[in-house]
């Protein structure tokens, strides 16, 4: 399917009025994901931004036109594994999908996701990585970039502070589970995202995982209209590369010939405004190291 045809040829399955922030690109990702997956889907949205904005509904009303669950922060994958087994027994082919934030994937929900990946449960797990617990007030998570301001890693007036630890390279962790399909996606590259969701839909021998990198407007301090541009800069600077792993084979989807410096991406974001040149150099070196590792893996 062409990304341009999403508007005219697919059905909207999410409530048109959800209270996501103005310019939120997670909302865009969710709508694209659901439009591609279609009505034959069961959705689980654990606590997080998309749970909070009303996709799971309120009272007796639902926020989606498909069955939508509100699992705990730490059990979406194992709950969906059970649902999938039930439909397998009934002989019905249903897409069983989790749309979880990075808190429910990288931190709290990791044990059940890892278990489901190892057991080979036939579910699709989609993580929208906005680098923190953005729904509850921008607390740090395992996925937050080193040096970033969050409400639990504050920065003082002299510009000292921010997260001290490295970002967990979660797509790589999932790839190393040897699952049939793992991919990273980005809201600025909708066509690429559509292709990857379609591939994940075809997987029938295990878990498919998609990691979407979503800059957060409110929490990171990005202008609402630059939402997509910042996401695009993350790919162009190799900070959040686009790649996929099919049955253990790495493939780069985007290989910028002249990658932009990471500084260009960091400058757009307020949570990095206190970083010194040395901090930026360190992040650049870290980005280059991870990119070279990825290129080596893709050339195997």
């Amino acid at each position: 399917m062409k990304a341009i045809d999403l508007v005219s040829k697919t059905e909207e399955l999410i409530s048109p009025g959800i209270s996501a922030c103005v310019g939120c690109n997670v909302e865009l990702s969710l709508r694209v994901v659901m439009r591609v997956l279609g009505p034959n889907t069961i959705l689980a949205v654990p606590p997080g931004c998309m749970g909070g904005v009303g996709v799971v509904g309120w009272d007796m009303k639902s926020g989606a036109k498909v069955p939508v669950f509100f699992p705990l922060l730490d059990n979406p994958a194992s709950m969906l594994a059970g649902i999938k087994l039930h439909y397998d027994r009934l002989g019905e082919d249903v897409n069983v999908v989790a749309f979880a934030g990075d808190g429910a994937t990288v931190d709290a929900g990791f044990q059940c996701l890892s278990g489901a990946a190892e057991r080979g449960d036939k579910i699709i797990y989609i993580c929208y990585d906005n680098e923190g617990y953005m729904n509850t007030g921008y607390q740090r998570s395992g996925s937050t970039t080193k040096g970033a301001w969050t409400s639990t890693t504050p920065v003082n007036k002299e510009g000292i502070g921010g997260k001290m630890q490295n970002k967990k390279d979660f797509p790589m962790i999932m790839a190393m589970h040897d699952i049939p399909y793992m991919a990273t996606a980005n809201p600025a590259y909708v066509q690429d995202m559509v292709n990857k969701i379609e591939k994940a839909k075809q997987v029938d021998n295990g878990l498919a995982y998609i990691h979407i990198f979503n800059p957060c407007i409110t929490g990171w301090g990005v202008k609402s209209e630059e939402s997509i541009e910042v996401a695009r800069l993350a790919v162009q600077s190799n900070f959040a590369p686009l790649y996929e792993v099919e049955n253990g084979n790495f493939k780069l989807n985007m290989n910028p010939r002249n990658p932009k410096p990471v500084k260009e991406y960091l400058q757009k974001i307020k949570k990095f405004s206190h970083l010194t040149d040395e901090d930026i150099e360190e992040l650049q070196a870290d980005t280059d190291k991870k990119w070279n590792r990825l290129v080596n893996l893709a050339s195997l």
Binding site: P16, G17, I18, G54, M60, S62, G63, K65
Partner: peptide, 23 residues
């Protein structure tokens, strides 16, 4: 009205929506 073929109830009272046009 949305009647689902699945065993779970899909929004007995319909779709939850906010008038975001007012924002």
């Amino acid at each position: 009205k949305f009647k689902s073929k699945y065993i779970v109830p899909v929004g007995a009272d319909g779709i939850y929506e906010i008038d975001t046009g007012k924002w």
